[in-house]
Design a protein around this nucleic acid. Structure first.
Length: 420
RNA sequence: GCGGUUGUGGUGAAGUUGGUCAACACACUGGAUUGUGGCUCCAGCAUUCGUGGGUUCGAGUCCCAUCAAUCGCCCCA
């Protein structure tokens, strides 16, 4: 019987892990610079952590991996924010800690969707949450953090799209206006939009099916319903972005899929033509009700998530490769009856911090040299039966082919010399 | 969840209107060369064509189902 990974999941093979490790290390370094610290939450939670009342998103309603144990219902996390806010409230971080809390997470997420380029059922997200204080500068700084990561991956073909949903008062007023506008035209809209009209009329605006529908073009604009406070907030976000030198486009159709956003929402998309339909690299926004929902005080938060598979694939399309070396520095070859001497030599080198590989499978001399080459060894140590009798071994620089015979005691020094 | 395309060894692939042995190249293993990496030459490397059924005297080639990848819709990171 043979098996394969479940649909939409995949193995990260040894050829790929250096790239992942380097990406992850770089992200942790950026978080260190921006003073975010990591939080690790379970990969499954009580289903209600994700499935909140009034949530109309497909992610929550159609795409979750939910399972029952006894009377309890659990769900594999489809996103990171809910778990982090749950933890924030559970541990009462809102009292006694300096706010805002600046947290990041990195790990697998699960959504039962039909896989395609840039979309799998288990995928990896890195995300940050900045919880406890609402400030336009925080929003701008968060976007800067994400952009910094994108930039460090060598990606340049992206654009930042940003919008504001306004505060509750603005949003409610707008929602009401949209409903009034669309209701008489309901028959001209697609089936999904019928549902959206009741649950979340804002979503009609970025409906793909009706994108070219003139009804949409004539819809009232959120801008006209923003109160003074919301306008001022957004203006300051943009001002801060300008100050940080981050280019952006204002897209007033951008409303985002998750229902919890207020004020700032943004999406950073690839502008490469070969990115496929899933071009969003990272996206997020401000949320004003989540902390309260999980039992904490009324507090605002701001966060985003990066799809790491998308980030990496985009980086590789732009020519990024990891600098990490998986090569052997030294390869130890055996010739004749030399017992476990090569093994001991390799071990000694490793104690000196030198990556050493030793032939353990009894191959021919030629095969051992080939193997040394394939492993990228810079220095080859040849342990030959006859030299060994005199307490000596051969050491060869694989770059220029020069070879010396040295006493065993000198081997470490000589090796270090050759490695430079 | 819906629609299109694809599926032959480790990899890239050829397989004509269904008709013995499943090309070729690369990679890999061994040898020519019993102590030195290249080159060359020789040999080995798919009881089998994603999987399971069916049609047929005969199927990699036709039909059905199923699994997976991929693209688009939808959704989203």
């Amino acid at each position: 019987m043979s098996y394969q990974t479940p649909r939409g999941t995949y193995d990260i093979l040894p050829e790929q892990t250096p790239a992942w490790q380097e990406m992850e290390e770089m992200i942790r370094e950026v978080c260190r610079l921006y003073r975010y610290t990591e939080i690790r939450t379970p990969v499954f939670e009580d289903t209600r952590v994700f499935k909140r009342e009034n949530d109309s998103s497909d992610m929550v309603n159609k795409e979750m991996y939910t399972f029952e144990t006894g009377h309890d219902s659990y769900t594999l996390r489809p996103e990171g924010t809910a778990g982090v806010i749950r933890a924030f409230d559970q541990h009462k971080f809102y009292g006694g800690r300096e706010l805002p809390m600046r947290l990041y997470y990195m790990g697998p997420m699960f959504r039962h969707e039909r896989p395609q380029k840039g979309r799998q059922r288990q995928f990896t997200q890195f995300g940050i949450e900045n919880i406890g204080v609402s400030s336009p500068e925080i929003d701008a700084e968060a976007i800067a953090l994400g952009c910094s990561i994108v930039k460090r991956m060598g990606i340049s073909s992206v654009k930042v799209c940003i919008n504001t949903l306004g505060d509750d008062a603005s949003r409610d007023a707008y929602r009401k206006a949209l409903k009034e506008y669309f209701t008489p035209h309901i028959d001209e809209l697609c089936g999904d939009c019928h549902r959206r009209l009741e649950q979340n009329p804002l979503r009609i605006l970025d409906c793909k099916a009706d994108a070219d529908n003139p009804i949409l073009a004539g819809a009232p604009s959120l801008r006209d319903y923003l109160n003074e406070e919301s306008r001022e907030y957004f203006r300051r976000v943009l001002e801060a972005l300008d100050a940080l030198g981050i280019a952006y486009e204002i897209d007033d159709r951008l409303v985002r899929g998750l229902d919890y956003y207020t004020h700032t929402v943004f999406e950073v998309k690839s502008t490469r033509p070969d990115s496929g339909a899933q071009a969003t690299v990272f996206a997020g926004g401000r949320y004003d009700h989540l902390v309260e929902y999980f039992g904490g005080p009324k507090m605002s938060g701001m966060g985003f998530a990066i799809g790491l598979e998308r980030l990496l694939s985009l980086a590789e399309e732009e020519g990024w490769t990891p600098k990490n070396s998986e090569k052997a520095q030294v390869y130890v070859i055996s010739l004749g009856e030399v017992g476990s001497v090569p093994l001991k030599i390799a071990e000694t080198l490793r104690k000196e911090g030198i990556a050493a590989e030793v032939n353990l499978v009894g191959r021919s001399l030629k095969a051992q040299f080939k193997s040394a080459e394939r492993n990228g060894a810079e220095v080859i140590v040849i342990v030959g039966e006859s030299e060994l009798k005199e307490g000596k071994v051969n050491i060869k620089n694989s770059r220029d082919g020069q070879q010396f015979t040295v006493a065993l005691e000198e081997l470490i020094t000589k090796t270090k010399e050759m490695l430079g």
